[in-house]
Each structure stands twice: as structure tokens, then as C-alpha cells.
């Protein structure tokens, strides 16, 4: 399991290759990349990502461990950036690897849903109309809650 909280950008291809090279049983690789996106109501120049440094690594490690426990996957990588990120830049990467796609897809989605509500990061958007703290989205809580309903390792 590779967990990194960093200011620098990451190379998606290199991260996937590094994870896959570790073993030959892998048949499915799922990756998710989150980007700084524009908002048409208030055009975004970039965003400042604040985090609780003493807690973020720990929180992401817990999320990763929970995913390895719940799903039939072999390994995973989670990278989350902080600091100033311009429009279009990469914010987060999740890669999960397993034998088959179903568990790999589910684990990747689970990690993102979990991270969205449990990892201590906060976005402040820099827009042409000033700087605005991003409000949490209720949909994120709903997405997280669905995983507590039971299931998952088949």
C-alpha cells in the first residue's frame, strides 16, 4: 500500500506501473484522478488545498487498510496533493489492483467516497470574484453512508 500526501504533482502512468510490477496475479487495474475543475458561475483560477498535516497520512492509511480488508484486491495507491493547485491540475489519485474488475472498481469508488468525508482536506477556490471556501456536498455524505450498509467481500 502506498499512501502519499504531497505538494508535487504525480505521474499517473508511473504510479500504475509501479503498483503492477509488484506481482503477476493482477488482472484488473482501476484508477481515479480528481482534477481542479472550472465553475461557470464563478470562473476558477485555482484552489488552495489546506490540510491537517498530522492527521492526513493517518486518515488515508486507515482508508486504504479498510479497502484492503473489505474488498478482494491485492494492493492500492492513494496520493493526495495540498497547497496551491491551478485550474486543470491533478488533486488526487487512487489506484486499486486485483484479479477481476468488479472488486477493483468497487474498492476504488469506496476509497473516494470514504476520503471525501473522512480525510481532513479543505478547498478554497480562487475565483475572479474572490476567494471562497468550498461547501461540503450532501451527496458525499450519502455516498459514504451507503458503504456502511453491509456487504462487501464476496
Amino acid at each position: 500500500m502506498r499512501i502519499s500526501v504531497q505538494e508535487d504533482d504525480f505521474d499517473v502512468g508511473l504510479e500504475i506501473d509501479a503498483l503492477c510490477k509488484k506481482q503477476t496475479r493482477i488482472g484488473a487495474v482501476t484508477s481515479f484522478v480528481g482534477l481542479v475543475r472550472d465553475d461557470f458561475e464563478a470562473p476558477i483560477i485555482g484552489l488552495e488545498l489546506e490540510h491537517y498535516a498530522e492527521m492526513t497520512q493517518k486518515a488515508l492509511t486507515n482508508i486504504g487498510k479498510e479497502a484492503l480488508h473489505r474488498f478482494d484486491i491485492f494492493d492500492l495507491t492513494i496520493i493526495h496533493r495540498f497547497g496551491y493547485l491551478a485550474l486543470g491540475e491533478r488533486i488526487v489519485l487512487v489506484v486499486t489492483v486485483g484479479s477481476h474488475r468488479s472488486q477493483s472498481f468497487q474498492a476504488c469508488e469506496f476509497i473516494m467516497d470514504y476520503l471525501k468525508t473522512q480525510a481532513p482536506f479543505w478547498k478554497k477556490e480562487k475565483t475572479s470574484r474572490g476567494n471562497i471556501w468550498v461547501e461540503a456536498n450532501k451527496k458525499d455524505d450519502t455516498a459514504f453512508d451507503k458503504w456502511n450498509l453491509g456487504k462487501v467481500k464476496e
Binding site: L49, Y52, M55, K58, L115, A119, F121, A136
Partner: peptide, 29 residues
């Protein structure tokens, strides 16, 4: 809130020496 870098709720107990963090709902990812 978080107590000693673990997410916590309003009813969770706090103890001498703890590090308590207060913050708005998180918006990473």
C-alpha cells in the same frame, strides 16, 4: 472534530493532554 487525529463526534470524551481539532466538513478529493 477530531481527537488525537481521529475523527470524533460531539459525545466523545476528551482527556487532559489531548489534541482536539475543530473544522468545517471536509472537502478534499
Amino acid at each position: 472534530a477530531a481527537i488525537n487525529q481521529e475523527m470524533a463526534t460531539d459525545v466523545d470524551k476528551i482527556h487532559d493532554g489531548d489534541e482536539i481539532a475543530l473544522f468545517p466538513p471536509v472537502t478534499g478529493g
